[in-house]
């Protein structure tokens, strides 16, 4: 049970970091976010609709991202998300936390040397 909770927290935290980091570069809509995460992580990270949108709405509720409807290149209306100043501010400690987390794992398990 405990392991499951920790695993779920790690998955959630990594998903938050992935989304915020992507949106830090440019505004994207949901489908593009899922596609870019899958492509940029070489298929290691995957989001489907059911996992992506609750996460996006959660981040929007915390005011870290903001969505607005705009036409995409094909002229269809899509809800583009961009990072808010609060989200940019949050991204800095989030990156630091994950950096220390991986460094600690590396010290313990030699992850990067494996």
């Amino acid at each position: 049970m405990m392991v499951k909770r920790v695993r779920s927290k790690i998955a959630r935290g990594s998903a938050e970091l992935a989304i915020l980091s992507l949106l830090d570069k440019q505004p994207l809509y949901g489908f593009e976010i899922a596609k870019r995460i899958e492509e940029d992580s070489g298929g290691a990270l995957k989001f489907n609709l059911a996992s992506l949108y609750p996460m996006l709405y959660e981040l929007e509720k915390r005011a870290w991202i903001k969505g607005r409807w705009e036409a995409n290149r094909a002229g269809r209306d899509r809800r583009y998300y961009c990072l808010t100043p609060a989200g940019k501010k949050k991204l800095v400690p989030l990156r630091r936390e994950w950096h220390s987390f991986f460094r600690a794992l590396d010290l313990l398990a030699g992850v990067t040397r494996a």
Partner: peptide, 10 residues
């Protein structure tokens, strides 16, 4: 609308 748009894209 957003969920439908995602499914349309997929």
């Amino acid at each position: 609308r957003e969920v439908a748009a995602h499914m349309e894209d997929r």
